[in-house]
Design a protein around this nucleic acid. Sequence first.
DNA 1: CGACAATACGGAGACTATCTCCGTTTAGCA
DNA 2: TGCTAAACGGAGATAGTCTCCGTATTGTCG
Lengths: 182, 182
Amino acid sequence: MRADAKRNYDRIVEVARMAFRERGYDTSLDQIAKDAGVGPGTLYRHFPTRDDLIDAVMKAWVDHVEETTDKALTHEGGPREVLLNWFEEYVRLISVHKGGPAKITGAMGDEASPIRSKCQVLQSAGGRVLDRLREEDAVRDDVTPLEVARLVGGIAAVADQSGLEPAAVRPMLEVVADGLMK
Amino acid sequence: MRADAKRNYDRIVEVARMAFRERGYDTSLDQIAKDAGVGPGTLYRHFPTRDDLIDAVMKAWVDHVEETTDKALTHEGGPREVLLNWFEEYVRLISVHKGGPAKITGAMGDEASPIRSKCQVLQSAGGRVLDRLREEDAVRDDVTPLEVARLVGGIAAVADQSGLEPAAVRPMLEVVADGLMK
DNA sequence: CGACAATACGGAGACTATCTCCGTTTAGCA
DNA sequence: TGCTAAACGGAGATAGTCTCCGTATTGTCG
């Protein structure tokens, strides 16, 4: 990749990150190009579709998911607390951008989605937490990680769209957690 | 209202109903106007915003909600079955149009939403079911009808966006139901 | 019945966003 | 330094939203 290409690529991703965070995933791409100081052609060459740009913005975020999961696994307290803590972290993780929860949860299980790899990272992260709790025989085992991701993702999507405070989300996560406990 | 105005109004609503069902709430309004045989001006005079049109389309649907709730209340079986049955009906009710679950659940608790009255109908319907189950002391009482609506609505939104079969939705509803039982 | 005022109609067009094409510019190598 | 492949970016095609306003229709009243 040529130096000027990389420069522009990085600038676009950086501008897009801010734009998505502040204005949501449906913000104007031409505006992002303008803010990044490039023409729309440049943006669309690097990122043929909106999802390709979203995917690029999420690259750095993946490391953060791994790290957060590790922390959640060492969380003190009983199984219910570990699960709830993970749920809260999960909601926070997928809510970094406006529209993120709906986007990510909607793409889950979709083989063809450009952000598929990100969803898999999340899903396996959740799987690790569930496995750990199942070792303790604390969580029912007729529910898949995908279903759990959808349950919590659904709550996050609603919270995101309705602009709910974390305190308002908590009771709903508790219902799901209780429903999952043995 | 003049006779010709009513004629056009009704045609627009009818065409919109089909369009929303088939192509989702983000389908072109100009196209709906064209299909209804009117100019865009006519559509936008009757329905200044997209939500106003959605609201009109939902008018008839309200009766259906009441009716469905009555049936759910007389459902045979234990409390868990009654609750699950209601959840499934609820999901079906808000999924009549593509994008409906997200739209309706997102508007819940929003005082200014044009479809606010529809949400309240749904919420009070859910409240009736919960009240009935609480009489039997079957359901925990630290959860509000609004929270339950958001939990189930979140699942419906995810299912709608991912195109899930009812059979795939059921286990998730079970988790929420179990989490709500005492 | 005929005329008129109020009401409704609908299309042209302004505005905004998406996305492409292609002539121009530039980086990096020989 | 000069060449070529790569990258740039803006003009413009396409499509959706929404408004304005001249035209047409309705229904009433004399």
